[in-house]
Nucleic acid binder design. Sequence first.
RNA 1: GACCGCGUAGCUCAGUCGGUAGAGCACUUGACUUUUAAUCAGGUGGCCGUGGGUUCGAGUCCCACCGCGGUCACCA
Length: 565
Amino acid sequence: MKDLDFLPLPGFGAVLLRFPSPPWGRGIKGEGESFGKVSDNILSETAFMTESAPLPAASSDLAEAEIVRLKHYQAWRDRGVDPYDGVFRADSTPGGLQTKYQDLPNGEISPDHARVSGRIATIRNSGMFIDLHGPDGKIQIFHDVKHLAPERAEVLGLFDIGDIVGVEGALRRTPRGELTINAERMVILSKCLQPPPEKFHGLADPEVRLRKRVMDISTNADLRAGLQMRCRIVSAIRRAFEDRGYLDVETPMLHTIPGGANAKPFVTHHNALDIPLYLRIAPELHLKKLIVAGLADRVFEIGRCFRNEGISFKHNPEFTSVEAYMALGNCADMMALAEEITVAAIRAAQGESLIVRYGDRDIDFTPPWPRKTMIGLVKEATGLDFMTLTDPVEARLAASKIGVDTPPHALWGQIVESVFGAKVEKTLIHPTHVMEHPRDISPLAKVKADNPLVADRFEAFVNGWELCNGFSELNDPFDQYGRFKAQMAARATGDDEAQYMDESFVEALEYGLPPAGGLGIGIDRLVMLLTNSQTIREVLSFPAFRPGEGASVVRRVDESKTPLS
RNA sequence: GACCGCGUAGCUCAGUCGGUAGAGCACUUGACUUUUAAUCAGGUGGCCGUGGGUUCGAGUCCCACCGCGGUCACCA
């Protein structure tokens, strides 16, 4: 056996395991030339000295599994290897190899070599079989321990589940059908000091899942697939807007006046300017300013909004929306656009079918979606016709009689909205455009020419959730100024989510905003529907939660004075 | 914010009527060497969320607090 030919030189760190030529088939034939060549590369990539780290110290409250990992870390150091400073160039990924060699028959060995990196997920047969997980899939690693030199076999034991390693070797498919790399070398690229979650169940406690989010994503294939799907959906949405001539723009997150929505903002402070700044609750006003400015006739922005409100299965303090504005467009254009964009997202998620399975429901997104007025839906559900109950006092009394209580200062439109929210919203399972929202609750939308009580505005509801919001943008600066004044009055009566006067926005309107349609879509909720996720946490990489006491092996070791022995 | 539920080993979970703290995975020692959540035999590992109370005795009962979840409220 030629094992010793390939031992790393003293002081050359990261090449740790060398295995002899495999005792089977074509691997023997190809081994000499390709191995020698690649070997030089790996040696050159990894040939560097590593400083000896200070001896770690472990406090007695470390779990045994943590201490073992620290000892393995130290053992690498003792061999002159920095287990965080390896260099490895992969030419393949686990999932890519699964696809490329899907036709390799059981028991066959490919003449090809591959170099992959990944995280050790399981170790079987005392290191003989290792499952290596990468973002796109997994592949099995095989070590023929019988042919491993004793000094190398010893090093094999320094690998732990969770370590990130690089592996090179020939490809084969085992008689039982598992695509496998016959490892000729394995390199430590990053030592895993924390014991990973239980390999079969992963993390189950919802709190632990949040606090150890990194490991949840790493070990929970469904979560990982959902987050990856989210990214593809967002890309598809971006492409769909660009295909329709919309310019992908960015506007400020820090606002001097929180505007564009009725919501409570997060407040921060700019030191040099010595002014409060608000994390944006909506990009709306800035995007319309860009239309005024003539940057483009069509703009869109996919990005974060922040609202200082409660957390629930469909609310996160920061969330992602897309907003789009179309010069010369109107509310009807936006309803059609909402359908097109949603269909593009569905195609990215599941292909041709527009029937989306969510929980135990099949939701049919086939356009065009039904278009109904809010007043009409409320009348259908309750028998109350708010077109004839236009006095706030009468309206409030009527709502109260059917169990919908509203505050004394509530405007007619707010009462209608409350009844709609209580009696109608939950019933809208299949996509439905709800049109003609009350003017009172639509301070940025044009009123309907034939009915000044309602705005030319719609919201699309799916599964009882609001998914889209769009309208014919109010571009009359006189009207807009008056609407802001009305919002200020509402704020004065205790409505702390009413909007602020934004004089710079009114001034922009005074330069002339062309007639325009605007649309907003809640990305998180759309992704929830398309990934069959029951909570918004499943579609966010790092959902919000209250911080608790952290636990870190490194920190505890640093604080300890007991040397690790 | 209100109510209900949960919190036990690194992870997943049992824990009966209040009476010595349990299993699987992980880790470790050994066996095994073409496994697939490998298997087999032994071993290590606990502030039972935190603090108080009742009791001869509390993981278990009571109170408070912390965290999480659910329902409701709030929420474009």
